[in-house]
Structure formats: structure tokens, C-alpha cells
Amino acid sequence: MSRPTLSLSRARYTLGPWARIAGLTVCALLTLGPVVWTVSTSLRTPADSFDLPPQIIPAHPSSAAYHGVFEQIDVWLLALNSTLVTALIALGQMITAGLAGYAFARLDFRFKKPLFGLVLATMMVPLQVTIVPVFLVLKTTGLTDTLLGLIVPAFPTAFGTFLMRQYFLGMPKDLGEAAMLDGAGPWRIFRSVYAPLARPGLAIVGVLAFNYHWNEFFRPLILETSGQNYTLPLGLVSLQGNLGTGSISVVLAGVVLSMIPAVAVFVVGQRPLREGITSAGVNR
């Protein structure tokens, strides 16, 4: 009875890694399939865009669609606006999330738990519910149709605050207590002790904020009316007129161009995040 059981366990052990690899391969194909199709179609001519069955590798690759994007919209201005907005929002969220997360994790003050619960409750409120009050506030301050009106309201982040609070709670209290015995105050303890250890968490907040707000469409659509203040996702809407002429390759070429910065940030940010998390675990 023991031999069949042993052989069965060995078979399961042998098939286990291959089953995981097969499952991950299927998930990767489902995720990357639309991206590959988008890039492939952007390199086709309008006449080849609707071939059936579709060809993954274009028979006659052409960059005409990308030239059409630059001719129809000011890509450089839109990319500059998006870069400025998303970079400042990411930096602002790193600062506010770090400070708020440290306060909720390490400081004692009245109504601490109710306030933190209120912060978490804001995560369940859709953006469409708050956009009208935000618009009215920005209108009274003269920040509508400005890039600053997109940046400042996005500084508070409930998810980033929750993430950094959990990150600070995982750090040892002995470090702060030792600094307090040396005469350091709360601000000095945060700046000199906990903030350097929290760099991996802050990097995660920054990368997620950049990727989210780079692709953001709803807020710029409501708050911006001048073309000079459009972000890249909003400017790409003007390319939809090509769908009526069958030039879907021009639209997808614009989509590919908009994906490049987000992919670059993700690729570049992978190594610092991995190394930072590993070093933080060793320091703990």
C-alpha cells in the first residue's frame, strides 16, 4: 500500500511545477495578447487593419500610422503635460502618504481610530460623486482649466495612507524609542529613522500613482477645457475620427505611444523596489 502512495506523491511533485508554469503561461498570453495585437495593428496599413484572420506579424510593416499621430495632435505638448501632472502627483502622494501613515502608525492623538476609519471610508466613494464639489472649489479658487487644478486635489491618497501605515507598523519600535532617548522629537524620528526605512513603501506608492494618473481620463475631461492643458489620454480622443475612415492603425499607434512611459516606469522601478524591499527585510 505504501508504494502506490509514494509513487502518487512523486507524480504530484513532478507535475506541480509544470502545472504552475502552464497556468502562468496561459495568464501571460491572455494579458499580453491584446497588447501584441495593438502593436501589430499599429504597424499595418489601413487596408490591412481588418484582415481575417488577423496576422500577428504584419506582412508589410509601416510606420505611417505613427506619422499620422504626430500630424494630427501635438504629441510632445500632451506628453509634457502628462509627465508634469503625473510626476508631481506621484511626489505629492509619496509625501502625504508617508506623513499620514507615520502619524496613524506611531503617534498617539485623540480620535485616531475614527479618523483612520474615515480615511478608509473615502476609498468606497466613487470619483464621480466628488467631482462636482471638487470642481466648485477649484472654480472659486480660479484653478479650473489649469494643470495645478489636476495636481493639488490628487495629493491625498487613502490607499497610500493605508499602505504606509501598515508598512510603519511592521517596523520595530525600538528604533524610535532609542532616538527619543537621544532627545529626538517626532519629526526628527520620522525624518532620520523611519523615512529611510520606508523608501520601498514610498516607491510603491509613487509607481502606482504614476501609472494610475498617467492613464487618467475622467478628471482631465471635466476640469480641462483648453487644448493646451490637455493630457495625453484626453488628447488621444481626437484620433477617434480615424475610425470613421477605417484608419484604426492611427488610433492604436497613439495608444502604443501612450503606453511607452508607463511601461518604462514599471520596468525601471522593478529593480529598486525589489532591492529596497530585500534590504528593508534584512534591516528588520
Results as ranks from 00 to 15, higher is better:
residue 107 L to E: 06
residue 107 L to N: 01
residue 107 L to W: 04
residue 107 L to T: 02
residue 108 D to K: 09
residue 108 D to V: 08
residue 108 D to N: 00
residue 109 F to C: 03
residue 109 F to T: 00
residue 111 F to P: 00
residue 111 F to T: 04
residue 111 F to K: 02
residue 111 F to S: 08
residue 111 F to I: 04
residue 112 K to Q: 07
residue 112 K to I: 02
residue 113 K to T: 13
residue 113 K to R: 14
residue 113 K to Y: 11
residue 114 P to G: 03
residue 114 P to Q: 04
residue 114 P to W: 02
residue 114 P to T: 00
residue 115 L to V: 05
residue 115 L to T: 09
residue 117 G to V: 08
residue 117 G to E: 12
residue 117 G to T: 15
residue 117 G to P: 02
residue 117 G to Q: 14
residue 118 L to G: 14
residue 118 L to T: 12
residue 118 L to A: 14
residue 119 V to I: 14
residue 119 V to M: 13
residue 119 V to G: 01
residue 120 L to F: 00
residue 120 L to C: 01
residue 121 A to Q: 05
residue 121 A to C: 10
residue 121 A to I: 11
residue 122 T to H: 06
residue 122 T to I: 08
residue 122 T to R: 06
residue 122 T to V: 04
residue 123 M to A: 10
residue 123 M to D: 08
residue 123 M to G: 00
residue 123 M to S: 05
residue 124 M to E: 03
residue 124 M to F: 14
residue 125 V to H: 06
residue 125 V to L: 14
residue 126 P to D: 05
residue 126 P to F: 11
residue 126 P to S: 06
residue 127 L to M: 14
residue 128 Q to Y: 12
residue 128 Q to G: 09
residue 129 V to W: 07
residue 129 V to C: 08
residue 129 V to D: 10
residue 130 T to K: 08
residue 131 I to Y: 04
residue 131 I to Q: 11
residue 132 V to D: 07
residue 132 V to L: 11
residue 132 V to T: 11
residue 132 V to S: 08
residue 133 P to G: 01
residue 133 P to Y: 07
residue 135 F to L: 12
residue 135 F to A: 08
residue 135 F to S: 12
residue 135 F to I: 10
residue 136 L to Q: 15
residue 136 L to E: 11
residue 137 V to L: 12
residue 137 V to I: 15
residue 137 V to Q: 13
residue 139 K to R: 15
residue 139 K to L: 14
residue 140 T to A: 11
residue 141 T to I: 15
residue 142 G to I: 08
residue 143 L to Y: 09
residue 143 L to P: 06
residue 143 L to N: 13
residue 143 L to M: 13
residue 144 T to F: 02
residue 144 T to I: 12
residue 145 D to I: 10
residue 146 T to G: 05
residue 146 T to L: 07
residue 147 L to T: 01
residue 147 L to V: 03
residue 148 L to I: 13
residue 148 L to T: 13
residue 150 L to G: 00
residue 150 L to V: 06
residue 150 L to C: 07
residue 150 L to H: 00
residue 151 I to P: 06
residue 152 V to A: 05
residue 154 A to L: 03
residue 154 A to T: 04
residue 154 A to I: 07
residue 154 A to P: 04
residue 154 A to F: 09
residue 154 A to N: 09
residue 154 A to R: 09
residue 155 F to P: 04
residue 155 F to R: 00
residue 155 F to A: 04
residue 155 F to E: 02
residue 156 P to S: 06
residue 156 P to N: 06
residue 157 T to L: 12
residue 157 T to R: 15
residue 158 A to I: 01
residue 158 A to D: 01
residue 158 A to C: 03
residue 158 A to Q: 04
